[in-house]
Amino acid sequence: MEHILLVEDDPRLSRSLSEQLQAAGFACTQVYDGDMALRAVGGQRFDLILLDLSLPGKDGYAVCKEIRRTDRQLPIIVITAFSDIDDKMNAFDLGADDYLVKPVHFQEVLAKVRVFLKRREPSTETNDRIVVDDLEIDTTKRTVTREGRSIELAPKEYNLLVLLARRAGKVFSKDELAEQVWSDSHAVSNNTIEVYISFLRSKVDKGHARKLIHTRHGFGYTLSADQS
């Protein structure tokens, strides 16, 4: 059962959200200020944090920054009052992954929580490291290195690379890649896939004698150490 930390100083809103999250099948721990939140994060593992920005004591900004110093992967969704347009605009700069605006609509909370927990799913697998030749992907930290050098990838590029690397050697058609990397209701053109594959090639293969991403003409793409 996924565990959510709810940091909200309004007890009524906190109780209401907590009850609804539990009813939806999540474990939920409620804390009411920034210091309690940091202590909770230090003491146990959470899958997601719902964080109100306006808190007594240490505010949401400080909590967010503090958590991001040690954990860049834990999804944080900040909750802002609707009058705080600037808070909302700065939410991403704080290291938050998304924001919700009060008055929060529980269906929206649930939708966002599910989206972020779904993105974390691969990390729950036992094998957190994918290694193909000198390419290493750490799916817990969402980091990619080749020959020990770190490679910065945008989320969709990362998802594409993970998909290819998990089944190294398998040839994926463009349609397969589109279906698995993008959501069901989103379609992307073949050309779009080609653009992202070209981005991946320039970031992963450029400057290396041994290429890992290969085109199988008429079929699709594969990631493999095999140069044939």
């Binding site: 998304d98 269906q107 929206e108 939708a111 966002k112 989206v115 945008a154 989320p155 969709k156 993008w182 959501s183 209701s185 989103h186 379609a187 992307v188 053109s189 050309n191 779009t192 080609e194 653009v195 992202y196 070209s198």
Partner: peptide, 29 residues
């Protein structure tokens, strides 16, 4: 493009019936 994909995820909650097709031009290198 990544910001657009996040917005596409957002719109799904209010308009799940909307089908979105994205096409990146070949001149994006």
């Amino acid at each position: 493009d990544e910001v657009l994909y996040a917005a596409m995820d957002d719109v799904q909650s209010t308009a799940p019936e909307l089908r979105i097709n994205v096409d990146l031009g070949g001149n994006i290198a």
